[in-house]
Design a protein around this nucleic acid. Sequence first.
RNA 1: GCCCGGGUGGCGGAACAGGUAGACGCAAGGGACUUAAAAUCCCUUGGGGGAAACCCCGUGCCGGUUCGACUCCGGCCCCGGGCACCA
Length: 890
Amino acid sequence: MEERYDPAALEAAAQKRWRDARAFEVTEDPSRRKFYCLSMFPYPSGKLHMGHVRNYTIGDVLTRYHRMRGCNVLQPMGLDAFGLPAENAAIQNNVPPAKWTRENIAYMKQQLQSLGFAIDWTREIATCDPDYYQWNQWLFLQMLKRGIAYKKTQVVNWDPVDQTVLANEQVIDGRGWRTGAPVEKKEIPGYYLAITRYADELLADLDRLDGWPERVRTMQANWIGKSTGVRFAFPYELDGKKELLWVFTTRADTIMGVTFCAVAAEHPLATHAAKNNPKLAAFIDECKRGSVMEADIATMEKQGMPTGIFVTHPLSGEKIPVWVGNYVLMGYGEGAVMAVPAHDERDFYFAKKYNLPIKQVIDWPGRRQSPPIPPLQKGGGAAGGFSDAWHEWYADKDGVCVNSGRYDGMSYRTAVDVIAADLKKKGLGDKQVQWRLRDWGISRQRYWGCPIPIVHCERCGDVPVPDHQLPVVLPEDCVPDGSGNPLNKRKDFIKCACPKCGKAARRETDTMDTFVDSSWYYARYACPDNDRAMVDKRVDYWLPVDQYIGGIEHAILHLLYSRFWSKVMRDLGLVRYGEPFSNLLTQGMVLNHIYSRRTGKGGIEYFAPEEVEPRHDDDGKITGAVSKADGRPVDYQGMGTMSKSKRNGVDPQALIEKYGADTARFFIMFASPPEQTLEWSDAGVEGAHRFLKRLWTFANASKTSIDLVLKNEQKYANFFKAAGGAHPAVLREFHLILKQINFDISRHQFNTVASGTMKMLNALEGAAGLGSVEASLFIRKEGLKFLLLTLSPICPHITDHLWRELGYGDDILKAPWPEPDEEALKQDEIELVLQVNGRMRGSVRVAADADRAAIEAAALAHEAARRHTAGLTVKKVVLVPGRLVNIVAG
RNA sequence: GCCCGGGUGGCGGAACAGGUAGACGCAAGGGACUUAAAAUCCCUUGGGGGAAACCCCGUGCCGGUUCGACUCCGGCCCCGGGCACCA
């Protein structure tokens, strides 16, 4: 055995052994319980970062743990290879995205392999391979046939200088990231997937996902956003024609408080009104500027302008003015809203800003008296002397209607029912269920993605590419230059024959959202070699995924799209499951500082933390930085998730090279529990490495002892039984730690699993010099065995090596996971915490089976208890069995 | 702005179903070994008072429930994630 711990050599040897033995290649075996353990595949950004190490180590720990539990475990890996960063790299370095991506894949795969993950690499997939994405295209066409995929217009961020569509990420404060030009909204056609058809099922099935974190289920439920309300119309006349302005509201009980309506800038009513109103037309143009992001829209200044058009209130017959509001979106609901400024915060501020009337129609009897509504003045009633007291009641539904004619006195529920019925009678509305969820727009005006298999023919229209012509292969030699999709310049790609009429036609150049790629890759891992079908019956064995692990940032979109896609595949008869992931572990993100600077053009550039010198305030908080390269100031953006685009990733390579994979794995598991956000710092890596060195040294020194014990285990077990003294307590400690480790692994708290293994080593070192030599040797053999077994999922290389070297067996991969021995955990006497009035004052030792009277007597007799109860009357004694006794005195 | 999380020593974190706050580490200080350094090992380490026994304070802030609150409830502040074209 080597004297010195040399992770590089040892890890390479272990990995070679696993590779030669094909240790992690698995096949379907109906006789064994299967366990499909999957980590979200990485985007091949160039190098792994700590978030990847964290994600894949968690997955690997679970994989190895379940193997030891006897499961047939599949852990595959692949690459989410299409996406925007490849195009950005192309712009910067003039290299084709395909080349850049494939080079990154090769490097990252080698990095992943050096970490020793128990991955079945024979199943590797990359979403940029036609073998994979042809099935995106095929399924898209299946959806198109069934109307699940369809075409409509979409609103995108438009950079008027580069003449290109911008991703939300490329819009910085309403401006294009490269040009600095103010972004405009633009309507273009695109394909959508009707995820809303599945809204009910996607919501209902959340209840069945009890292996998912509650917070993810809550987020998804809120995102789907089922709300029951009333859809109704305000009649109006336009050029002598009768028209209806439709709106949706969840607060129909406030309908009598409507004092104006607001429509989106793109609403037909607004368009019509602008025809003879240049000021309004200019305002509508203004509204069309800015980004399409919800966060931008929600936080921007609410603005509006009257259209001059009035509609009729469907119940009161009042004339209601219609405004154009920049906060009303054409894509949501009807593109128009009723406004009740007295009972809606946004409407209230809008009304105040434009001096629109406010009419209270809900009151809260028994609550604070409502403020009086001042009489309307010319130009509006909201100004001056007006109280905002009902702010605190905005969301409440427990008031009753007032100032509402025949609805006065009605509760929320009654009022909504009666008002809906009245509207229905007039043919102007009804109750309706509305969803926040919108259909999924998948068209991207980008090059590096899966081509949408459609041909545009002047005669036949949009024609689907027939199955036998699939895949539509993306040419891989294009280099985007920032001015739009380079496919548009590729005549050889665009020019094609119409599949229907055979005449010359134009191929669609939009590609698919990369979320399409990641919506079903987990199924393809079961049958990556099938070139005739998207999936086959092997999927029935492996799916659904038993444990899915990935960043919390995917809590909504990726996971929801995958759930939707599964249900579509199920309805097409392709798979049997409706939910793809039985258990989900959402890893917290690994954060690092973000530094950026505005470029001359008004764009933005990011600096890696090692490229700047941070500046601190008196509290030690970072306020800014200067670039080490040019000495000029750099802005501090705070902490954020490690990403390629923000340049704040930390490459684990240096860590692996200096300390080895086991140290890197141990450290990242030890640093914090997996679901928690982790602000990156490598302080503490030394400690993890020191632990493994200590383990190495201790095992080295124990070899002859363990040889001895293993040759005659029974003899040493007898010695142990006979020895007594401190020995049972030491063995008990190991079983206690083991019990805790088992519990912690079951709840995925790997940091305390790691610290448990450290405690075991501490206990082993502490027990080295105990009385009976034979009994000590027995404990050492037992303890070290537990230590190696429980450490092996986290640090598979060193444990693999030591297991063999110490003679425990020929392969730790085949060893079963250890269970604590309840017999060893028993004890005759226990220690109870002694409290007086809830404050700890000492402890009492009592027999393990002592009854309440005996414990109370022991507690009251305790010196500290007597001291703290002196002069007081004991009122009661609270006893928590096995834990504490609390004397309540006063 | 809306939805979802989080906040505990100098730092990462522990405390399992309301029951000993600070496990296990890092860093720091002191010591041993060494010609010296590295490595390794031992000791100390939340704050305050005290010679000590021991006592007081302490889990973002304010208030509440309880014999007892990091844990439960109400309100606030700060940080992170998501908001549909980053993945």
